[in-house]
Simulated assay, not measured.
Amino acid sequence: MEVCNMTIQSNGTMENADCSRKILVPLYSLVLLGGTAGTVMMSLVLFQRKSQSIITVIIANIIVLHSILLVSLPFRLSYYFLAEWKFGWFTCRIVSSMVHFHMYFTFLFYVAIVVIRLLIYFKKLQLQELKMCHAVALSVTIWLLGMLIFSLIFLFQYGTHMESSQHHCFQFYKELGHTSMVIVNYCMIGLIMATVLGLSLVQLVVITRLAKTLWPGLLSHQEFRAQINSFFFLVVIVVCFLPHHAFRVYFIQNHFQSEKPELILYGEICKALTTVCCLDMLCFIGGVVH
């Protein structure tokens, strides 16, 4: 039984309004509500604690990223509800790119947390040596480097290979037919996959060592809880980000040969899944991760 109906117009545009309302609207609504609640509550917690640790500063950066994405979600929900874009082509490019902007920047800050804690574990870095200036310098470096790359891609690649539409949005999958975008996507996918695989293997080795050393009172040791905390961020990456990148490889290799409309919907679902990482702050507040 089909979940929803999909039809193809003569101009090649997929009209999946029914599918979007049934799948994407509930998913984005959940992220908007849960993400807003999580970011607000975590912001209050950080403000009350007034901690200046490097991890706290990185968490604050992640909250800012979540907030930027959450502001863009009402535009998406409006489009999926009305099946028509009413905010202009440039706004469409901005709102569409926010998902990628949020995903890659969040990935960088997640990786920064994992790497810092691994360096501390292997005695390559002393926690006492990390000051507020180091946290700010790291944050500024990530933002500047990320903004430079993002600006170059957005200004010269994203949405520049297709005709603008006054009524439709979020159909940038057509750009994947261009060689330059295929190369950019493959490079990003390969880099992210390799990074996650490498960090996950190292993190599992560290957790296994600590479990053997500190058993049976594992949770009473701050070092073990810190590594479990880091592993949580890797799990979020695997659950929220990797499906999108894995499917993107399949999409590039198959869509322009088979022209299956359902692949476009599956791609939008995987993209929406990347925004679920906004619920990470609810996990902290709810005590899933301490």
Rank of each mutant, 00 (worst) to 15 (best):
A211D: 00
C187M: 10
N61G: 12
Q9F: 07
L191W: 05
R76F: 11
F47A: 13
A211V: 00
I63C: 12
T36M: 11
E262M: 12
L144C: 15
I252T: 11
I94N: 03
A37Y: 14
A226K: 00
P243W: 07
L27R: 01
Y110K: 00
C4I: 08
R117T: 11
T13R: 07
I94E: 05
C19V: 10
L108C: 15
Q222R: 06
F87L: 12
G38C: 08
L118M: 15
Y80Q: 07
Q166P: 02
T141L: 15
V71A: 11
S43E: 00
M281K: 02
I58A: 14
H221A: 03
A83E: 12
L279S: 07
F90A: 04
Q126N: 14
L69M: 10
T141F: 15
L273F: 09
S67K: 06
A17W: 05
L148I: 13
M162Y: 03
V206A: 04
C270Q: 03
L65M: 13
L44V: 14
L69Q: 09
C92Q: 09
L119M: 15
L130W: 08
G177C: 01
M132Y: 15
I252W: 02
L65P: 01
S78K: 01
N11W: 04
I8A: 06
G88R: 04
H178K: 05
W85T: 09
M162C: 06
I113C: 13
V136A: 11
L155W: 06
H161Y: 14
Y110M: 07
G217K: 02
C133P: 01
E175D: 15
F47D: 09
Q253R: 09
V182R: 14
M98W: 08
L242A: 03
I55Q: 10
T208Q: 02
I149V: 15
V25F: 12
W89P: 03
L118Q: 15
C133G: 05
A246Y: 14
F232M: 03
F154G: 07
V115Q: 06
I264H: 03
H100C: 04
T213K: 09
L130I: 08
L44S: 08
N61I: 00
C169Q: 02
T7I: 13
E175S: 10
E259L: 11
F122Q: 04
P74L: 06
L108T: 06
G34L: 12
Y110P: 02
Q52M: 11
